[in-house]
Simulated scan of single mutants.
Amino acid sequence: MNDAPLIVHLIYRLDFGGLESLLVERINRMPASAYRHAIVCLTDSNPAFARKITRAGVAIHALHKQPGQSPGTHVALWRLLRELRPAVLHSYNLSAVEYGPAALLASVPVRINGAHGRDHDDPHGTNRKHNALRRLMVPFYDCCYANSAAMEQWNRDVIRVPPYKSRMLANGIDAERFHPGLPDETVRPDGWPFDPAHFVIGTVGRVQAVKDHATLLAAFALLRERRPELPLRLAIVGDGPLLESMRAKAASLGLQDAVWLPGARTDIAQVLRNLHVFAMSSIAEGTPGSALEAMASGLPVVGTRVGGIPEVVDDGVTGLLVPPSDPGAMAAAFERYAGSPELAARHGAAGRERVLHKYSMTAMVAAYQGMYDSLCERKIKTRGAVTSCAE
């Protein structure tokens, strides 16, 4: 029987997405002798995505929270935590930050909240109500970390997270899984609609407002008008609440034969190896895991100058940065790469080197385990326990 301390990961929903993918990677890769893991979803989970968890014994619980205020969810979580008796509650983003008090009342020794990005309706973190909630919750947490330097600084300056509770934990990428395609590689993803002669711009991520795919579509349409002689194509891979509206927008722009929106995929690494340029049109971001996967795959990145994107994409070296919500600037950046395959190859190669040196999966897992270890050790001493921080 594994008596390692239990970590409960509290998220809004377990589904295809960058935060969720990296959570699963950490669970799968962290030594089983160090910690056990359970996932609590405030709403529910996608069974197809849940199958990505390969670590044995990871239970998934769903609280089926309804939209809006839901006091009953706090009670349900308290009861579940009393039953599970975890050593650590690790909540993610604003959607789960308010449950720190429930964890305290359930006698969970270590409580952590991670800031992995902001919502589309508050991309710059200026919503007073949301920030007041974040500040109110700080005393209930032992650590409030961020996954980008910009977000950590915002945590300190705006949310007033004290330095001893603040950390920056960068995302990591599996550079063995995500790698450049071979020059003569002919393997295409199932359903791939494009020909080898096409120049394919692509993006991967949840199709939601914060990703601003509308600007990406507008930039692609503008580029096609400027350079009708180029065989340009666009792939927008991912599921989300705006998927159908993006399909409709592509059709309204007359791009239905040039834009592929297949929804969620499980073969992202292969998809990336068939792209020529990766795009990030977000209006807010933490450390963009999808951009790191693209860089590990040898792709140059055209990204917006927001959040953690400039920390990852070195402008003019591994990609090109443009202002957010600016289709013209984005189209111009795409045009530079479409007109110069040599530049795209050079920036793509530099991007992979950057990932190998700064964003390895091993380093990410070690950093998170180090956070758990140090906080548990501190709480053990504080509480006078001798065997585990769950006591």
Results as ranks from 00 to 15, higher is better:
residue 219 A to Q: 11
residue 243 L to Y: 07
residue 296 A to P: 08
residue 15 D to M: 14
residue 291 A to F: 04
residue 234 L to A: 09
residue 149 A to N: 09
residue 264 A to M: 00
residue 225 E to M: 11
residue 376 C to M: 10
residue 1 M to C: 14
residue 329 A to T: 03
residue 40 V to M: 08
residue 390 A to K: 11
residue 375 L to S: 08
residue 296 A to G: 09
residue 249 K to T: 13
residue 71 P to N: 06
residue 62 A to T: 06
residue 192 W to N: 09
residue 185 E to I: 02
residue 367 A to W: 08
residue 297 S to Q: 02
residue 282 S to Y: 01
residue 378 R to W: 12
residue 114 G to R: 05
residue 335 E to R: 00
residue 278 F to S: 03
residue 99 Y to W: 10
residue 92 Y to N: 15
residue 209 A to C: 05
residue 165 K to D: 04
residue 22 L to H: 14
residue 315 D to C: 13
residue 304 T to K: 00
residue 204 V to S: 01
residue 101 P to N: 11
residue 6 L to G: 00
residue 3 D to R: 13
residue 367 A to H: 09
residue 345 A to Y: 02
residue 153 Q to C: 11
residue 321 L to E: 07
residue 18 G to N: 00
residue 165 K to I: 02
residue 220 F to Q: 01
residue 76 A to Q: 05
residue 55 R to A: 14
residue 210 V to W: 01
residue 338 A to H: 01
residue 146 A to C: 11
residue 324 P to I: 07
residue 114 G to V: 06
residue 377 E to D: 14
residue 326 D to K: 01
residue 138 V to F: 04
residue 391 E to T: 10
residue 83 E to T: 13
residue 24 V to F: 09
residue 180 P to C: 07
residue 109 P to T: 02
residue 11 I to D: 07
residue 101 P to V: 08
residue 4 A to I: 07
residue 205 G to D: 04
residue 271 V to A: 07
residue 221 A to D: 14
residue 152 E to R: 13
residue 86 P to V: 03
residue 373 D to K: 09
residue 134 R to C: 03
residue 26 R to Q: 12
residue 44 D to Q: 12
residue 305 R to E: 09
residue 227 R to P: 01
residue 340 S to Y: 10
residue 156 R to H: 04
residue 254 G to Y: 08
residue 366 A to Q: 13
residue 313 V to F: 01
residue 243 L to P: 04
residue 370 G to H: 07
residue 354 R to D: 03
residue 335 E to L: 04
residue 242 L to P: 10
residue 319 G to Q: 09
residue 12 Y to W: 08
residue 283 I to H: 01
residue 52 K to C: 05
residue 353 E to L: 13
residue 90 H to Q: 07
residue 128 R to M: 15
residue 92 Y to Q: 15
residue 93 N to G: 02
residue 73 T to F: 08
residue 223 L to W: 05
residue 39 I to S: 04
residue 135 R to W: 02
residue 343 L to W: 03
residue 208 Q to D: 11
residue 105 L to P: 04
residue 383 R to M: 11
residue 28 N to A: 08
residue 225 E to G: 14
residue 355 V to C: 09
residue 189 P to M: 05
residue 152 E to P: 00
residue 302 V to W: 02
residue 140 F to I: 07
residue 47 P to L: 10
residue 374 S to T: 15
residue 102 A to E: 00
residue 177 R to I: 06
residue 306 V to I: 07
residue 366 A to Y: 03
residue 5 P to L: 15
residue 88 V to Q: 05
residue 45 S to G: 04
residue 46 N to T: 13
residue 258 A to N: 12
residue 281 S to Y: 02
residue 119 D to H: 12
residue 283 I to T: 12
residue 31 P to K: 05
residue 330 M to Q: 09
residue 381 K to W: 14
residue 322 V to A: 05
residue 364 M to D: 13
residue 138 V to G: 03
residue 100 G to D: 05
residue 59 A to G: 12
residue 23 L to G: 11
residue 309 I to D: 03
residue 83 E to D: 15
residue 286 G to T: 00
residue 264 A to R: 00
residue 389 C to I: 10
residue 104 L to M: 14
residue 41 C to Y: 05
residue 148 S to I: 11
residue 362 T to H: 14
residue 351 G to E: 05
residue 131 N to L: 07
residue 269 A to N: 00
residue 165 K to Y: 03
residue 348 G to C: 01
